[in-house]
Structures are given as structure tokens and as C-alpha cells.
């Protein structure tokens, strides 16, 4: 809130910042504009027309080609992996955060430190043993091979954010629940969850984006077209349709659409979700 006043105190316009702002806008928009116009261009015209011009014969053919090419299945896989992972992440992380905040045992705070340590582990670095583990568990090339590690690596940051939020809930509220005879599970469900809803949404959005866009786990832990998720399918499309650039870029647009829709609907949550996830 002090921000508005901070701005008012300034007089001269911020020339450097303004210039940087507009230049950066061009840097951001040009590639995105290019993706969209190219995806609308007939493949034949791609090699004939100016790449940045509006297509003279705009068409959705490229989208049709992508949709006819098992795209719905990859999309479905991504939805399943993301939905199951996020629900599980939220459930187990909220339970753990509840223990960290409410338990008086010393082991609870030690537990928290274990999770804190996890924030610093780069996923990439553990991929070889994760691969070994997934093979040993017989999960290679299944959607579980993507879901389980995705949950595990999301837990530290999720617990941290939820714990910080839960700490701000006044202790008296928990005590009064107890006086009313509520058990821990009921307290968690009907007190902790509603009160931490903003944090839960933030954590959920952040993790959904991470899992939806994840590339390394699918690349290493799955193989067949049956278990392919969207980011990997884009890569495969690029190999298959290397000459059909409009189709490849149409696939890119289709993969972003759900997130774009989420962005339009819940921009605030998405932005706070992303910046809350800065521990990565």
C-alpha cells in the first residue's frame, strides 16, 4: 500500500525505464505474434509470403492437422498428470504443514528442516537415480512415473509456503475447535483448509504450471506415444513435421491455450503463484 504514495513522490518521468519498457514489449510480442500468424498461414504460403505479414489466406488447417495427430490424447495425458499431481501435492503438503505448525514435538521442527533442505535440490541432478528407481518399481513408461516424482519435488516449497501461511492463523481458533471436541482431521478440513485457501490456490497454480510444462521427467521416464504429455509431444511434432512449420506452431499455441485461459481468469493467483515459487 505504501507504493502508491511512493510513486506520487516522484517528479521527473522515468525516461530510461520507459524506453526499456517499450523495447522489451517489442522483444516479447514479436515472437508471440510470429507464432500466431504462422500457425494461421497455409503451409504452402509459409515459404512464399513474408513471415511477419498477416496471412493472405488465413486458415485453421494447421490446427486441424495437429488435432488429427493424437494431440487430444497427449492433451489428456497432461491433464491427468497435472490434476492428480496437484491434488496430491496440496493434500500431503497441507497435512505436513499442519503438523509442522501445530505439533509441539521437537521432531516436527526437524521435519520442517528436512523439507527446507529439499528446496535447494535441483531436480535435474537426481534424474539418473530417479530413472533407476522408476525402473525398479516397474513404473517406467506409465503416467505414475511422471506423477510420483513431480509430487515429491513439489513438496518442499509447497510445505514452506503453506507453513508460513498457517502460522499466521491465531492459535485460539485451533483451541476453540478442540474445546468443541473436533479431532485433528476435522480441524484440518474445516478450519485450516478454508483459512489457508489463498495460499492453497497459489501453491496449486504454481505447481500446475510446473507440472504442465515439465519436460525432463517425461523425456527420461516415458517412451511410448501412449504416455506422451504435451511438452514432449511438441518436441516430437517438431521432428515429425519439420517442414510443416505452421503445424508445429499451431501445436505450440494449443499447448499454451489452457494456461492462457487460466491466466485470463485468474491472473492475480497465477502471478502470485509464480513469484511465491521463486525458491526454485
Amino acid at each position: 500500500m505504501p507504493a502508491r504514495a511512493a510513486r506520487a513522490a516522484r517528479t521527473a518521468p522515468n525516461v530510461v525505464g520507459g524506453l526499456a519498457g517499450w523495447v522489451w514489449l517489442a522483444v516479447i510480442i514479436l515472437p508471440i505474434y510470429y507464432i500466431v500468424v504462422t500457425s494461421l498461414r497455409p503451409t504452402d504460403d509459409y515459404y512464399a509470403e513474408n513471415t511477419l505479414s498477416w496471412p493472405s489466406r488465413p486458415t485453421l488447417d494447421a490446427y486441424g492437422a495437429v488435432l488429427a495427430n493424437d494431440f487430444p490424447r497427449y492433451f489428456g495425458n497432461s491433464v491427468v498428470v497435472t490434476a492428480v499431481s496437484v491434488v496430491a501435492i496440496l493434500a500431503v503438503s497441507l497435512m505436513a504443514a499442519y503438523v509442522v505448525v501445530r505439533s509441539r514435538r521437537r521432531s516436527a521442527s526437524r521435519l520442517f528442516q528436512v523439507f527446507l533442505l529439499g528446496i535447494a535440490i535441483p531436480i535435474q541432478a537426481t534424474i539418473v537415480p530417479v530413472y533407476y528407481l522408476i525402473i525398479q518399481l516397474g513404473l517406467y513408461d506409465t503416467l505414475w512415473a511422471l506423477i510420483l516424482p513431480s509430487i515429491a519435488f513439489a513438496i518442499p516449497l509447497s510445505v514452506l509456503i503453506l507453513t508460513n501461511f498457517l502460522r499466521d492463523v491465531p492459535g485460539e481458533l485451533f483451541e476453540s475447535m478442540k474445546v468443541d471436541g473436533a479431532g485433528e482431521w476435522r480441524t484440518l478440513w474445516s478450519l485450516a483448509l478454508p483459512l489457508t485457501r489463498p495460499a492453497v490456490v497459489t501453491v496449486g497454480v504454481y505447481n500446475a504450471l510446473q507440472v504442465w510444462n515439465g519436460f525432463l521427467f517425461p523425456l527420461v521416464l516415458t517412451q511410448s506415444a501412449e504416455t506422451r504429455v504435451l511438452p514432449l509431444s511438441l518436441w516430437a511434432f517438431q521432428g515429425e513435421f519439420s517442414l510443416d512449420v505452421p503445424a508445429v506452431l499451431a501445436a505450440v499455441v494449443l499447448s499454451v491455450l489452457p494456461i492462457l485461459a487460466a491466466y485470463v481468469i485468474g491472473r492475480r493467483q497465477l502471478v502470485s503463484g509464480l513469484t511465491a515459487g521463486f525458491g526454485r
Partner: peptide
Amino acid sequence: QGPSLWMAAPALALFGLFAVVPLGGV
């Protein structure tokens, strides 16, 4: 003493198996 530590068990088990164990494994 508050809630049972078992409530944190799923998070700990998943994190342990797929993050801590691989870290040692590497």
C-alpha cells in the same frame, strides 16, 4: 502435543523416496 506425526507421513514418504533417496543414490 498436537496432531500425530503420521499426518506428515505421506509427504515425508514421497519426498524421501523420490528426492532424498535419489540424492544419496546419485
